[in-house]
Simulated assay, not measured.
Amino acid sequence: MTKLYCLPHAGGTPAGYRTWIKALAPEIEVVPLQHPRPSDDEPLSLQEAAESVVEQCETDEDFAFFGHSLGAVIAFEAVRALSGPPRRLFVCGSAVPPVEASRGRDLRSLPDREFLQEVARLGGLPPEIHADAELRQEFLPGLRADYTLAETYEYHEGPPIPCPVSAFRGLSDGHVDKDGLRRWGEFTTADVTAREVPGDHFPLRTSATFLHRAIRKDLAA
């Protein structure tokens, strides 16, 4: 059995992978993880968050990573921090790390209303959160902390990771195009598989069945 450690998008939680546990059983054990988040009292780099993720994993067993958006970059840095590679790295809705590090945004410093409006415009605010003021306030601290991780991320050159990469994007996701997905091949010594699925920046909601099928196929290869 392969353990699949799953990391959420900015503002997301491990609960987003709850339905995956049953859907991918029994061949794959889904283990949703929460990366640590920075605060005013405890600054945190994305690499430090990735190292904390590694500490939550049982890396002496058969395992893989799945990360969505911010979670994909954290998963990549987690693989770099490991002494031994996972079976495979699955990334969804993310350009390659140097591109993510160079986006040059500074949304985290905006007032709450403007911050949420800008995140929504970029497609990073789930519809149910956008429509509910109470949910938005609950969602806001984690989202702002995650944007701090993303916007202060500094990519450091290093050797390619020694495991295959499976990269996904929603067909209408403006965050990364198919050429951007293929660029993940520049960051691994193994193979890269790029796939487009129906949906936008959140294909985990609209194309979970497709993702599950692809995950099973790639882990069985």
Rank of each mutant, 00 (worst) to 15 (best):
P127Y: 07
C163W: 06
E128W: 09
T209Q: 15
V99R: 14
C92L: 02
E138I: 08
R205C: 12
G142C: 05
F76W: 14
V165M: 03
L110C: 05
V192C: 11
L204P: 03
W184Y: 09
G71T: 00
Y153T: 03
W184G: 05
G158S: 12
F90E: 03
G67P: 10
V73W: 08
A101W: 09
V99T: 15
A133G: 03
D146V: 01
G104A: 04
T148Y: 09
V96F: 02
Q137M: 11
H175S: 07
I129T: 12
R105A: 12
H201Q: 07
H201V: 00
G67N: 04
P111I: 05
E118C: 02
D191L: 01
L204A: 04
A75V: 02
G67H: 03
E118Q: 10
S83I: 07
E100H: 04
P162Y: 13
R144Y: 07
P86W: 13
W184L: 08
Y147I: 02
Y153D: 04
P98C: 05
L82G: 09
P160L: 02
A167T: 07
L125C: 14
R87L: 06
F115P: 00
P162S: 12
P98K: 13
L149H: 11
R136L: 14
F202A: 10
A190F: 08
G142M: 11
L89W: 10
V176I: 12
S207D: 12
V197I: 12
P203L: 11
L82H: 08
I129K: 05
F90N: 06
T209P: 12
P141W: 02
A120Q: 15
T206A: 13
D173P: 10
L125M: 14
E118I: 02
A120I: 07
D191I: 00
F76L: 06
W184Q: 07
I129W: 06
K178H: 00
E138H: 11
L149K: 08
C163L: 09
V176M: 11
L204V: 02
G158W: 07
R169T: 01
F115N: 04
G93P: 06
V73H: 07
C163E: 09
L171R: 13
L122I: 04
V119E: 13
T193S: 00
E128P: 11
G180N: 06
P126H: 07
D112S: 12
E118W: 03
H175N: 09
L70F: 13
D106G: 10
E151T: 01
E151S: 05
Q117A: 14
V79L: 14
S83Q: 13
E151C: 04
R136W: 04
Y153A: 03
G67S: 08
R182H: 00
P98Y: 09
H201C: 03
G180H: 07
D177A: 08
A167L: 05
R103T: 01
L204M: 10
L82D: 10
Q117P: 03
I74Q: 02
R144A: 04
A145I: 05
L110S: 04
P86D: 12
T193H: 00
T152Y: 05
V119N: 14
R205V: 15
A208R: 14
E77L: 00
A101V: 03
G185D: 03
Y155M: 11
A81K: 15
V73C: 10
D173L: 08
V176K: 11
E138M: 14
G174P: 13
A120M: 10
Q137W: 04
V119S: 15
V96G: 06
P141G: 02
W184D: 06
